[in-house]
């Protein structure tokens, strides 16, 4: 698997740049425009990100996650399910900045290349912030009755946690 992923990124970048050149796109101008948007996005998330990193660091240093993990471990570990990832699973559908603040804390605590670090990365990378999308899309179109949207979306989020554990353990 390692060889595939180390080839993927250069392949995607080279492919896009060559296609852009064939279609006579202003390559570097487009890159700069996109990169500027990236910087603006980072600046716009900076206040909430800093606020949430502070809260996550406080929570982490207080021993809160250890207590939670100890409480959940007897139930989860017989199934081969790491209890450490539960806080991330809970915050992922609710807050994007919060889950990335927590992911960053977990990556430095357990190691980015550890099994828990990889499971946490896959979890964070494989779904969107459910409640944000629901609020923004239904809010903008004046929909009040959302039917089975939230149960179905949370079911998908729940599945992504299970699949994150499975794919990291099996691949």
């Amino acid at each position: 698997m390692d060889n595939i992923s180390s080839l993927l990124v250069p392949m995607i970048i080279t492919g896009i740049v060559i296609y852009g050149a064939i279609r006579k796109t202003d390559l570097f101008g487009s890159f700069r425009e996109g990169a500027a948007e990236g910087i603006n996005t980072l600046i716009s998330v900076a206040p909430s990100m800093i606020g949430l990193v502070i809260a996550v660091e406080m929570l982490s240093s207080s021993g809160f996650f250890e207590i939670l993990t100890c409480a959940l471990e007897p139930v989860l570990s017989p199934m081969g399910f790491p209890a450490e990832i539960i806080p991330l699973g809970l915050i992922r559908p609710v807050s994007g900045s919060g889950s990335f603040a927590l992911l960053s804390n977990m990556l430095s605590q357990f190691g980015a290349d550890s099994e828990i670090g990889e499971i946490a990365s896959v979890m964070a990378g494989s779904t969107e912030t459910t409640f944000y999308a629901v609020a923004i899309y239904y809010g903008s179109s004046g929909i009040k009755k959302t039917g089975c949207t939230i149960p179905a979306a949370l079911f998908a989020d729940f599945c992504s946690v299970i699949f994150a554990v499975m794919t990291v353990k099996l691949l």
Binding site: D2, L8, D113
Partner: peptide, 24 residues
């Protein structure tokens, strides 16, 4: 975030993300 945390290969999780995400 993985790159910031000093991962040796920040993109090593791509296939897992694709599979987990498609299944979800």
């Amino acid at each position: 975030l993985r790159a910031a945390a000093g991962s040796t290969d920040p993109y090593s999780i791509l296939p897992q993300v694709w599979i987990a995400s498609s299944c979800a």
